[in-house]
């Protein structure tokens, strides 16, 4: 029985199944087996960074929004005072890196799951990586070169 002659070329609402060349055919487009542990490390990183982020983010929100007068106290002077201490610089730096990588990896899996065409998938991920690298570098630069006498 020939599948290709009868099946539609594009998945549609009525035929939601993607046309997969049987049998999971290894075509020229099929990515090679990576034989790396990248996905394992990615999965593990999500769990571990998630645990750390719960502490970091809830602590951050408490300090910024709840304790000591709440959000009204946040000003340039308040931020400058906090970043005078290496402890808060480290806190914010770790939070920035973990949150950005955690979010980026999460979005990467979402793009992998939902993007339907290889091209869409590629460009969405490129956009994601560019945005992530830009935000992480900019944030890191600000934390390290912050000058309270600006």
């Amino acid at each position: 029985m020939s599948v290709d002659s009868t099946a539609p070329t594009e998945p549609s609402v009525d035929n939601p199944a993607p046309l997969i060349e049987p049998p999971r055919a290894r075509t020229a487009k099929t990515p090679k087996a990576t034989r790396t542990n990248f996905e394992l490390y990615g999965w593990l990183f999500m769990r571990l960074s998630g645990i750390v982020l719960v502490v970091l983010v809830i602590g951050h929100l408490l300090i910024q929004l709840v304790l000591d007068g709440g959000v009204t106290k946040v000003s340039f002077a308040f931020v400058a005072g906090r970043w005078a201490s290496p402890f808060w610089m480290t806190w914010d730096l770790v939070m920035l890196w973990l949150a950005m990588l955690h979010g980026a990896n999460g979005l990467r899996t979402i793009i992998n799951d939902y993007a339907e065409r290889a091209n869409t998938r590629f460009w969405l991920k490129m956009l994601l990586y560019t945005a992530t690298v830009f935000t992480v570098l900019l944030g890191t630069l600000v934390i390290f070169t912050f000058d309270p006498n600006i």
Binding site: M1, V3, T6, A7, N15, P16, A17, P18, L19, I20, P22, P23, R24
Partner: peptide, 23 residues
Amino acid sequence: IKGLTVLKDLVVDMEPFFQAYRD
């Protein structure tokens, strides 16, 4: 069942499923 190419009515092409099984 969803995710496999429908051949006729309720019959789908099970080949991708069995290929994953063989793999």
